[in-house]
């Protein structure tokens, strides 16, 4: 499958990247590992004029301990990040989600920044132009209807990132940079909850750093897939426990992860969050297992994660 025509530019600095973006009237996309972007362009879901490669920018590939934080460059690959001793020691939840992401080969190419900012997915969206034209364009393609839920005015595509939810449970923040300057937001603030355009990131903005407070945590990531590798999560649950409290993030259902807090971990509070997350989950028939099933799996995976961590008494 050949790619449509576009130009390729490699930026050496963030400033250069921002400049290139502006020069192309925003009809540009930033490229890191390309494992999410290139298929989207191949399927003509994106039609860029120019691709701006960020891999040549120094500094986007570092992991540094600054004060009491771990500062992760977005261009570091999932595989590299996984090897970092801090990750395994301090953030087992993130370690597990990195380990569970796609397959080893793609972990070596995919970057943490790209993984966080991956587009949402739908069985009726990630298809060729011919397929989608025959079916008729949906909301996410600029059409007027949702092809999965006919009368819906909102898009139900699923955010299938494995690692953003883990990062959320460990209070990660994102530092974004644009021509106007830098801003730092909590990771959950990156999500718009609108499947058509799932991120709040502004046109041209570049993810510069992911900042994680360095505090030891306990945690687990539970991922439901059909196969043992390559697959995106049909439901994913990240849980991080800090002392008596816990944070739970649910991914794979709907356009953004859902975040829940537990102030004091016990069987009752875990059950409450599990019930709450179950109520919140609104899967539709846009992934390979049935919606009702995926909904049911939300509390199951939450409880499993807690059980594996050994918090809340378990069974």
């Amino acid at each position: 499958m050949i790619l449509p025509k576009f130009d390729y530019k490699k930026a050496r600095t963030i400033e250069e990247a921002l400049e290139l973006y502006n020069k192309h009237d925003g009809n540009a996309f930033y490229l890191a590992g390309g494992t999410d972007l290139v298929p989207l362009i191949k399927l003509r879901l994106l039609q860029p004029k120019v691709i701006i490669d960020l891999k040549g920018i120094d500094g986007l590939k570092d992991i540094k301990k600054i004060n009491n934080s771990l500062v992760v460059g977005p261009n570091i690959t999932l595989f590299e990040l996984k090897q970092n001793p801090f990750i395994k020691d301090y953030f087992p939840c993130l370690f597990e989600s990195l380990e569970a992401t796609s397959c080893k080969t793609l972990q070596m190419r995919g970057t943490i920044g790209g993984n966080i900012l991956q587009n949402t997915r739908c069985l009726q969206y990630n298809k060729s132009l011919e397929w989608r034209t025959a079916r008729g364009f949906c909301l996410k393609m600029g059409g007027k209807v949702c092809n999965v839920v006919p009368n819906s005015k909102s898009c139900f595509s699923n955010y299938c990132g494995d690692n953003a939810p883990s990062l959320m449970t460990i209070d990660a923040k994102a530092k974004l940079v644009s021509a106007k300057g830098e801003r730092t937001v909590r990771l959950e603030k990156l999500f718009s909850e609108d499947g058509r355009s799932p991120f709040t990131i502004k046109p041209g903005e570049i993810l510069k750093e992911i900042i994680i407070p360095l505090k030891k945590t306990k945690g687990a990531y539970e991922k439901l897939t059909v196969r043992g590798s390559i697959d995106y999560p049909l439901v994913g649950v990240a849980v991080t426990v800090k002392k008596d409290a816990a944070v739970v993030a649910v991914t794979g259902i709907g356009p953004s992860p859902h975040l829940y807090e537990i102030k004091e971990i016990n069987e009752k509070s875990i059950n409450e969050v599990a019930d709450w997350a179950y109520e919140d989950a609104r899967p539709v028939l846009n992934a390979v297992l049935t919606p009702l099933y995926r909904k049911k799996m939300v509390p199951v995976l939450i409880k499993r994660a807690f059980k594996r961590i050994g918090a809340g008494g378990g069974r």
């Binding site: 397959c103 069985l123 009726q124 990630n126 298809k127 397929w131 025959a134 079916r135 092809n147 059909v226 196969r227 043992g228 590798s229 390559i230 697959d231 995106y232 390979v288």
Partner: peptide, 25 residues
């Protein structure tokens, strides 16, 4: 694992990601 999924005449998993060919693991 395996089965073709349809929406009317549209094949929903005509790829090697959503059509689940078993892997080594």
């Amino acid at each position: 694992f395996e089965g073709n999924m349809w929406y009317k005449g549209f094949l929903l998993n005509p790829d090697l990601l959503e059509y689940k060919v078993p892997l080594a693991c």
